[in-house]
């Protein structure tokens, strides 16, 4: 069906392309893995919250002319605040220590957020055009757009920043303590609810960063998050739930698998590669590549 010469020629560009797309996945998954690692909840509202961040970037660009990268300064803290409030005042009160409640409340949140967005932003697809949208960089024959390259750098930087935060700050140490043993942390005087909310907030801050790097090459609509939820879960599982390094490596891997799968099997069937790997990892190495066995 596809001749090998074509594949040979496209292999390197597809690889580079997969890596840069994977960096975006990694950024989205960073927040998800942190939330899972600390709160042990599967956040079904993650996609909708990414959408919120994307609209924030769009509005800042269209109304105030703020460049998407400059918008990092606003969107990241903004999402942090939203995350803190949501966890503290909406999700936590509904949890009652039951997984099914968390499931339902995050599901409910995603319904609310998505429909509010449909109402206030309307349902059409919006995209932005910046000066660098069509600025291309040639990497030894693989031509990729500038925003994608910046997203790659952004993902690395975010991952590094998170690692530093977790290792070298009091907050990071508290988060790690709570992640390991919430009851124990409570006993030694850590305000667990606050740490939960901070973790959720940091998770959403990562989404804010992802949105700033994503919008210049993508679009936003109220439904846009759906396309990223499953892929983010895959990344989290592949990397190991709760592991940042895992998220980064997992994201890049998934990007590459998807890209090569698309090249070899076609873009529709190629999607299957990601899920097959997802299932295989879950079965044979549920802790993921970098996670600790529980």
């Amino acid at each position: 069906m596809i001749d090998s010469a074509l594949i040979g020629a496209a292999l390197w560009p597809a690889l580079v392309n997969g890596l840069t797309m994977g960096a975006i996945y990694a950024l989205i998954a960073l927040g998800l893995t942190l939330i899972y690692g600390v709160l042990h909840i599967i956040n079904f509202a993650h996609g909708s919250l990414l959408m919120v961040a994307l609209y924030a970037v769009l509005v800042l660009f269209e109304r105030l002319g703020i460049d998407p990268y400059a918008a990092l300064v606003v969107v990241v803290p903004g999402m942090f605040g939203i995350g803190y409030v949501l966890q503290r005042f909406v999700i936590n009160p509904a949890r009652h220590g039951r997984d099914e409640n968390t499931l339902l409340v995050t599901l409910g949140l995603s319904i609310v957020i998505e429909n509010l967005a449909s109402h206030f932003f309307k349902t059409d697809t919006r995209q932005i055009e910046t000066a660098y949208t069509f600025m291309m960089v040639d990497l030894a024959g693989a031509v990729i757009s500038m925003p994608r390259l910046l997203a790659f750098a952004g993902a690395l930087a975010s991952c590094l920043a998170l690692a530093v935060l977790m290792r070298s700050t009091d907050l990071g140490r508290a988060i790690r303590a709570v992640a390991r043993e919430a009851q124990g942390a409570r006993v030694v005087g850590i305000d667990v609810d606050h740490v939960f909310a901070m973790s959720f907030a940091i998770g959403l801050a990562c989404l804010g960063a992802a949105a700033c790097f994503l919008l210049p090459t993508y679009y936003v609509s109220p439904q846009v998050g759906h396309g990223f939820v499953l892929i983010a879960f895959t990344v989290v599982v592949l990397g190991g739930m709760g592991s940042f390094t895992g998220s980064l490596v997992g994201g890049l891997l998934v990007g590459v698998i998807e890209s090569l799968g698309g090249l070899l099997l076609g873009e529709s069937l190629g999607q299957i590669g990601v899920f097959v790997i997802f299932i295989v990892i879950l079965l044979f190495r549920p802790a993921g590549l970098f996670g600790q066995r529980t």
Binding site: L104, G108, N115, H119
Partner: peptide, 9 residues
Amino acid sequence: MALYGVILI
């Protein structure tokens, strides 16, 4: 639909 979600929560 949003109201439905709120009631759910």
